[in-house]
Simulated scan of single mutants.
Amino acid sequence: MFLALKEIKQSRLRSSMVVVIMTLIIWLVLFVAGLAAGLGNENASAIKAMPVSHFIIQEDAGERIARSTVSDSQLQQIKQQYGSAVMPLQLQQATITSPSDTNKTDVTYFGIDFTTELAPQPTLAAVDDKSVVIDDSFKAAGYTIGDAFKDERTGTVFTIKGFTAGKAYSHTPVIYLSTSAFKQIATPSATKKAGVNVVALRITDDEAQQLAIKGLTVVTKAAVVKQIPGYKEEQGSLTMMIAFLIGIATFVLAAFFYVITIQKMSQYGVLKALGATNRYLAKSLLLQIIFLALISIIISVLLTLGVAQLLPATMPFELSLPLVSGIIAIFVVVALLGSLLSLYRVFKVDPIEAIGGAGE
């Protein structure tokens, strides 16, 4: 450790350049990862937050809630098999306006039974056919409890009974209303079909496999989330960007450490001539790299948190402890991988050649 810190102190400019390069790369990865998580939540947080494990969905709906229809007769069969675990869900995207102005907002209605676990928190048993619970993103538009809004298509007016945090679907805020209230704003085609879109359940995989109702299938919540329009494509693109950045970081750091190691060959040769072992030199090099990586990581995390505070509320961005911890672990490994070529050169250095005595 002494040799590693001494070398960093003596080569301040070189060490600073390594820190700057690593900081910028890690900062970019953290920002893209936070953006990916934020976009993912804005696309699917309402489904992810549901305390369920599976959905019963129409077999040919491609695992998409909006395409599915579960008829009333099928719903009764499901209730007979699963009893109180059954939680019907209806979904429809629409546009609302405030009666006091003409500003329009795209939303997604979730028609639910407020006595089930699908009810948003805090649970409001007093919700009726004319009141709703809405996502708290509406607060930015000036909505408060007791305010009213109008469904653009039907003209139906609802009163806001309460707010719930972080509930969105397909990049639109979610409005929770009762199943009877949902009928007031449902499109004519949905009204003719009757029934519900899907049935949410909290059951085991074994119980899920026992469903035997013609035209229906059981899928996991994770599968439903992936099939939300745009979710898979959006996350796939951002994940690919992160993977490329990590790959580029590995090559950049490997080249950087290798060049630095080549410049110090004579010094390593002298140390070997004085009796330093490969193990001692390798330990010193790895400690130096880890130390620089940790400094870069700390600066990057602080920069990312600072920038996150400056981002507008309309930009979805979210950093969680598991996400940040995972990226930190990845970059520690990347830094160590980038040092492998340098370690190989240190192991192979010949003391006599390194100090210029090979031709004597």
Results as ranks from 00 to 15, higher is better:
Ser296Cys: 09
Glu42Pro: 00
Val107Tyr: 04
Gln80Gly: 10
Ile175Phe: 04
Ala212Leu: 12
Thr116Phe: 07
Ser53Phe: 02
Gly356Lys: 11
Lys264Asp: 05
Leu323Ser: 02
Ile78Ser: 01
Leu3Trp: 08
Tyr344Lys: 15
Thr187Met: 14
Lys6Gly: 14
Asp135Ala: 10
Met315Gly: 00
Ala46Asn: 06
Thr304Ile: 09
Ala165Cys: 00
Ser15Ile: 05
Arg67Ser: 11
Ile26Lys: 03
Thr204Phe: 01
Ser100His: 13
Tyr231Lys: 09
Gly338Phe: 04
Ile298Gly: 10
Asp151Trp: 02
Ser71Ile: 00
Val252Leu: 13
Lys6Phe: 03
Leu281Ile: 10
Glu7Gly: 08
Thr250Met: 09
Ala212Asn: 15
Asp147Gly: 06
Val332Asp: 08
Ala212Arg: 13
Pro316Arg: 08
Ala66Trp: 09
Pro351Ile: 07
Ala313Cys: 07
Ile330Gln: 10
Ile328Ser: 12
Ser284Gly: 11
Thr239His: 13
Arg14Lys: 15
Val32Trp: 04
Lys9Thr: 13
Ile352His: 01
Leu303Trp: 05
Gly247Ser: 12
Ser189Met: 13
Gly195Glu: 04
Phe31Gln: 01
Asp136His: 10
Gln263Cys: 11
Gly83Met: 06
Leu286Ala: 11
Val29Arg: 02
Ala119Trp: 00
Thr304Arg: 02
Ile290Glu: 01
Leu35Asp: 04
Asp206Arg: 15
Leu340His: 07
Leu287Pro: 00
Met241Gln: 13
Ser284Met: 10
Ile260Met: 12
Gly38Gln: 03
Leu89Ile: 11
Ser45Met: 10
Ala66Thr: 13
Leu238Val: 11
Gly62Asp: 00
Gly162Asn: 07
Leu118His: 00
Thr95Leu: 12
Leu271Val: 09
Ile327Phe: 09
Gln58Asp: 05
Ala354Lys: 08
Ile25Val: 15
Lys6Asn: 13
Gln93Ala: 14
Asp350Glu: 14
Val198Gln: 00
Ser237Glu: 13
Tyr143Phe: 15
Val218Asn: 02
Thr97Trp: 04
Arg12Thr: 15
Gln80Cys: 08
Ser237Cys: 00
Ala249Val: 03
Ser266Thr: 14
Phe149Ile: 09
Ile298Cys: 12
Asp113Trp: 03
Asn197Gly: 09
Gly162Met: 00
Gln80Lys: 15
Phe256Cys: 09
Ile213Ala: 03
Thr123Asp: 07
Gly230Cys: 10
Ser84Cys: 11
Glu207Leu: 11
Leu201Ser: 06
Gln184Tyr: 04
Ser284Asp: 04
Ile25Glu: 04
Leu253Lys: 02
Ala308Cys: 10
Gly166Arg: 12
Leu303Gly: 09
Lys167Trp: 02
Lys167Asp: 05
Ile228Cys: 02
Ala249Pro: 03
Val307Arg: 02
Ala212Tyr: 08
Val332Gln: 06
Leu343Lys: 05
Asp135Glu: 08
Gln210Trp: 01
Glu63Phe: 10
Ile96Ala: 01
Thr250Asn: 07
Ala200Lys: 05
Ala33Glu: 00
Asn41Tyr: 14
Val333Gly: 01
Leu310Arg: 12
Pro99Ile: 05
